[in-house]
């Protein structure tokens, strides 16, 4: 009721202003308090969202100081004792941490080399299809796995590769080949995880590239055809340059998140037999921090991860701006 009154009260003062009833210049002269009083519903609306960000984003960011403290539950974020860089030193000298860091980097590298180009190739192949019905069918099918959770993907992988009833195991025995313990074998773990990632996300990630492809002006292709360029040449000189901005931006984001290999993706496939090759920073943080309650050292790992990511992002972006002229900012 009162909000309705507010707008009535505000009305006559607005009308003399020609054109837009609410113009920036007019409000700039108004004192802030008066402006807020007049438009209070708008400020009330944003409060819940801002409160959420404050509590669940900003406070945890400030709470990261426990990486430099010996956190305990009773003293909390503020009163716990300072220990400086002690946890970081512990990490740097611990062999287990170095192994996990290495695992993370290797899996991330696999993702960049194999999983990153897959949707680009898929989009290029789809782009060459002229039968719309076929194209739509393929798209519907390859997008579908994106909507399955990682727990379900694990379940499906189990049904494919389990040594008793797995589909692949059956096929192998059909050809008198020995079964592969794909889900337990350390030597296959990284392939399995990255492969599952490609299976789940390749189609979905292709959407962005397909959208970028439709943005390429047809006149460029016409000009190339007039010059006698073959389809292959058109791909090299028209399509790929057209895709370059999208490719560069997504690659930059991936490199910036190089230590983020996907918690759920790794966690569901991980078991004690594959810890040696598959334990990554996020899964280790989960087990050490949340299961074992080692809050401070785990926060140090998290902070280390964010800082590396940020530094990488900034430097790779700079490099990319220099080489390709494209960047995030």
């Amino acid at each position: 009721m009162s909000e309705r009154k507010m707008s009535y009260v505000g009305l006559p003062r607005k009308l003399p202003n020609s054109g837009r009833s609410i113009g920036k210049e007019r409000h700039a002269r108004e004192p802030l308090a008066k402006f807020i009083r007049k438009h209070w519903p708008l400020y009330v609306m944003v409060v819940p969202m801002l409160a959420y960000f404050l509590v669940f984003k900003y406070i945890p960011l400030l709470g990261s100081v426990i990486a430099f403290k010996d956190y305990n539950i009773f003293d909390g974020f503020i009163a716990s004792k300072w220990v400086g860089f002690q946890w970081f030193e512990t990490l740097a000298t611990e062999r287990k941490f170095l192994l996990i860091f290495r695992n993370t980097l290797i899996i991330s590298l696999y993702q960049i080399v194999f999983a990153f180009p897959a949707p680009i190739i898929l989009a290029l192949l789809l782009n060459e299809v002229r039968k719309t019905a076929f194209k739509r069918t393929v798209q519907t099918l390859v997008y579908l796995p994106h909507f399955l959770s990682w727990a379900l993907v694990y379940g499906m992988a189990y049904m494919m590769f389990s040594t008793q009833t797995g589909l692949v195991t059956q096929l192998l025995s059909h050809f008198d080949m020995p079964p592969i313990h794909l889900l337990q074998a350390p030597e296959y773990f990284r392939t399995l995880v990255v492969g599952a990632g490609i299976w789940k996300e390749m189609g979905w990630s292709a959407i962005i590239f397909l959208a970028a492809l439709t943005g390429i002006s047809p006149s460029l292709y016409e000009a190339a055809q007039l010059d006698g360029a073959s389809r292959w040449r058109q791909l090299l000189h028209v399509t790929l340059p057209g895709l370059l901005p999208a490719i560069v931006i997504l690659l930059l984001l991936k490199v910036g998140n190089v230590l983020d290999v996907g918690f759920e993706q790794i966690y569901v496939f991980l078991n004690p037999l594959t810890y040696s090759v598959g334990e990554v920073l996020d899964t280790y943080s989960f087990r050490l921090g949340i299961i074992n309650g080692e809050f401070s050292i785990t926060t140090a790992i998290g902070l280390f991860k964010s800082i590396i990511g940020f530094v990488l992002l900034v430097s790779v972006n700079k490099l990319s701006n220099k080489i390709t002229g494209e960047g995030l900012y």
Partner: peptide
């Protein structure tokens, strides 16, 4: 908040 993300543990503690 999109650029700087807090580590897992402080969020958990909150």
């Amino acid at each position: 908040t999109m650029v700087f993300q807090a580590p897992m543990i402080p969020i958990y503690l909150v």
